[in-house]
């Protein structure tokens, strides 16, 4: 009970903070060029969006490169004991480097619907963020994004692939 209350509280504070950070986007409810990543029209008339030069990979400290993924059980956001060490080392890095900012990406396997999975992915990312916050990381250094089932790490439609796709990726 207390734990639930506590997590809600932390969660709430994360949100206030994140909301404050991006207040500009919150107030602009309608059209605005700001944040629109359209870069023009393709030959076939399609609107091209996104920056093709942005690196999709890991942007964090080299020493944590091989320790940046936490895997989850099916339909669960509980962090398994074996991954606590990974999160702890990133937490330590963030405490040592107050200017560093981490982005925790939540992902799911393909089972269930995309819209439900995007919510489940957020719950996983938040679960990691909450643990980091409990470890004393400044919430200003934490942000989360859920990709749901949209960015699988491994292709395939079997448990082997699914187990590698149910994950939170710690990026910077």
């Amino acid at each position: 009970m207390l734990k639930k209350y506590l997590s809600l509280l932390i969660c709430g504070s994360c949100f206030c903070l994140l909301t404050a950070c991006s207040s500009s986007s919150n107030t602009s409810s309608t059209a605005s060029a700001d944040g629109d990543a359209a870069i023009g029209l393709d030959d076939d008339g399609a609107l091209l969006v996104g920056d093709p030069n942005v690196q999709n990979g890991y942007n964090g400290p080299d020493e944590l490169k091989d320790k940046n993924t936490v895997y989850f059980a099916y339909n669960s956001e509980n962090i398994q004991d074996s991954y606590l060490g990974i999160i702890q080392s990133h937490a330590q890095y963030l405490k040592n480097n107050p200017n560093a900012r981490i982005i925790i990406e939540g992902h799911t396997d393909e089972r269930g619907t995309p819209e439900y999975n995007i919510a489940l992915g957020e719950r996983r990312a938040r679960s990691v963020a909450r643990y980091m916050s409990n470890l004393g990381v400044d919430v200003n250094q934490l942000s989360i994004v859920s990709y749901g089932e949209e960015k699988p790490a491994v292709d395939g439609h079997n448990e082997d692939a699914w187990s590698k796709n149910r994950r939170a990726v710690l990026n910077y």
């Binding site: 909301t19 986007s25 602009s28 409810s29 309608t30 359209a38 609107l47 819209e115 995007i118 919510a119």
Partner: peptide, 21 residues
């Protein structure tokens, strides 16, 4: 929200957290 003929679009929501479904 995008017009499929002119390809012009407006951003409806980009709140912190999920903007989905």
């Amino acid at each position: 929200v995008q017009d499929i003929f002119t390809k012009k679009r407006t951003r409806l929501s980009s709140f912190t957290g999920l903007n989905s479904s």
